[in-house]
Design a protein around this nucleic acid. Structure first.
Lengths: 146, 146
DNA sequence: CGATTTGCTTATCAAATGATAAGTAAAGAG
DNA sequence: CTCTTTACTTATCATTTGATAAGCAAATCG
């Protein structure tokens, strides 16, 4: 298999992943969240506590816009800021109790859809899938550097 | 490994894929295209010819908005509509010569970044990656039905 | 110490996006 | 031959998003 075919397979795979991501997360977010706000909450849920700068970097948005969205989310009582002991310029953000509840609910529904996709897989297939996830994560979808 | 760990691995993988997708496609689009317009062009490039309805479905946007964006892309001479012989209500869309050139250029740059990620992989690792792509594509990131 | 940099905020603006209403023409159904 | 449905268009509007300017306080540098 030459580079061109390999690349084509890669593109088809990315398309499939994005498609499935959409299916699996469709309608899980509350209606009074914008897509950007939901995405930020997902990031906080997985990585908390995070600073505003980290959100800005990882969500590819400017600091002013990040600040604005976090402010809105705080006003909706979904997250809260608190001081970083070592550096008083920084602010950590974490989910509020209400935010945790909302995100737990969202992840539960996503997990159910994910499991539904695997419902016909045998034990060996599940192990095969797990190994494949590891291989791609470490060898192709690794992050940063190099 | 229980369901919870498996799901966690899945989420981490999705995050990594989206992150790498972003890195690999960063700045490939011309500045006078909006993100939505570039995304439509990518879809057309891979699937042409496509009808407006197909674009609407796959890009998850309403027909009126699809029509508007295709009109803008046509005015920029990046794609063109033509009649479908069997059904005169439908319109096919394909890239124009200029659109093809632009997308070839974009894909070439994406491919270079993709290959760069694999530059240290041995032949066996490449084969392993390819098998992993196949496994996940067919068993986890398959589309539709069920 | 003073100067610069970092982390964040507020304010403002323009552009992109999403949603809806209303209309046309062709195709298909009864 | 009507009636309905499908495919698309145009117009309009509210909201979201992205970008920029200006400012402040804490940290760091020389």
């Amino acid at each position: 298999m030459d580079n061109k075919d390999f690349f084509h397979k890669f593109v088809a795979f990315l398309t499939a992943v994005h498609q499935v991501t959409h299916e699996v997360t469709k309608d899980v977010k509350s209606d009074d969240l914008t897509p950007v706000q939901y995405s930020i909450l997902e990031y906080i849920a997985v990585s908390q506590p995070v600073t505003l700068s980290q959100i800005s970097d990882c969500q590819h948005m400017s600091m002013p816009n990040t600040s604005r969205e976090i402010k809105k989310l705080s006003e909706k009582n979904l997250c809260e800021k608190f001081a970083v002991a070592e550096d008083r310029r920084k602010q950590y953000v974490r989910l509020s109790t209400e935010g945790e509840a909302m995100m737990n609910d969202a992840f539960t529904r996503i997990e159910a859809r994910f499991m539904h996709r695997l419902k016909d897989a045998s034990q060996e297939e599940l192990e095969e899938i797990e190994r494949a996830l590891d291989v791609l994560h470490t060898k192709l979808f690794y992050s940063g550097k190099s």
